[in-house]
């Protein structure tokens, strides 16, 4: 049997060390995260927090005294009330409608924050999910082999429009976002095709509840999440870009006001569940 010798530079030579450095003054900016979807059983929570000094040992602070409403371009208005931990929820369950633009209006710090309008894309169906299994070394005991199960999700991309997707995974009803918190896709490279998506970053064990969501997003949302992803996965590597402000689609309505971080978007969701066997 041919033996190949591998030298891992990272293993032999590289090292990581947590350091303390003097950081610039914090800006304490308003942060919003929220999605409107076509899920009629949801109150579509929106979270408002305030950024904290990077070096602070405290968690980010929730904002609990804001007024939040969501507007549809059709004229509908959805009022929100504060729940907890910075979350605001609609006063009743409602569903977004594909093709309709939505935005959020927030009154905070005696000023108004608005998002840009985001049009909810047409839903693209997740046709089915299959489960693939592989024998791999047990990370806890490399001498043992274990079976890992990975999702394979099949979709048909609509040919007539440009589509952008986000994939979200749940394991036993818990969000599963490690190692990739933002699994994004753009149909530029396979427009109109049957797409068999293999997700070999997301392993399941036998007996797990697997849920896969195919979320149709707008081009603007895709661009925002891509930039956010690069900020948390490639910074500091030779393949990374220079860090920069991740600008979302939110701003105070007065010109000279501080930046608002985060994003408000409208998405449509197709979801499937399976028990891993």
């Amino acid at each position: 049997m041919k033996k190949v010798i591998y030298i891992s530079l990272i293993f032999l030579f590289a090292c990581e060390q947590v350091v303390v450095v003097d950081l610039p003054q914090p800006q304490k900016l308003v942060v919003l995260e929220g999605w409107i979807s076509d899920d009629s059983t949801s109150r579509h929570p929106i979270r408002l927090t305030r950024s904290n000094a990077f070096s602070s040992t405290n968690r980010v602070a929730p904002i609990d005294d804001a007024d939040v409403i969501v507007q549809a371009r059709t004229g509908e208005v959805f009022n929100y009330s504060y729940d907890q931990d910075g979350y605001y929820t609609a006063n009743s369950e409602y569903s977004g409608i594909s093709g309709v633009a939505y935005r959020v209006l927030v009154f905070v710090d005696s000023m108004e924050v608005r998002s840009e309008w985001d049009i909810m894309p047409e839903k693209v169906q997740l046709n089915n999910i299959q489960i693939q299994s592989f024998q791999e070394n047990d990370p806890d005991d490399p001498s043992q082999q274990i079976t890992i199960y990975y999702p394979k999700a099949n979709t048909i991309d609509p040919v007539e429009e440009r589509n952008f997707y986000r994939w979200v995974f749940y394991k036993n009803e818990e969000i599963y976002n490690e190692p990739d918190p933002f699994t994004l896709q753009d149909d530029r490279l396979f427009n109109g095709n049957l797409i068999p998506n293999n997700f070999q970053n997301f392993g399941y064990d036998a007996g797990d509840e697997m849920e896969v969501q195919l979320i149709s997003i707008s081009a603007r949302t895709h661009a925002y999440l891509s930039l956010l992803k690069s900020q948390i996965t490639t910074l500091g590597t030779s393949g990374g870009t220079t860090p920069a402000i991740v600008e979302g689609n939110l701003s105070f309505i007065s010109d000279d006001s501080p930046l608002v971080l985060g994003y408000f978007g409208a998405v449509s969701i197709s979801s499937q569940k399976r028990t891993v066997r």
């Binding site: 900016l29 942060v31 995260e33 927090t49 904290n52 990077f54 980010v60 969000i175 220079t242 860090p243």
Partner: peptide, 24 residues
Amino acid sequence: VTLPTDKYEYEGNLIPHFQFRNNA
């Protein structure tokens, strides 16, 4: 190097926020 001023949470991820490029 560009050092962050702030941190914020987005969907449970801790995100560094940067103001000026190459500030250290």
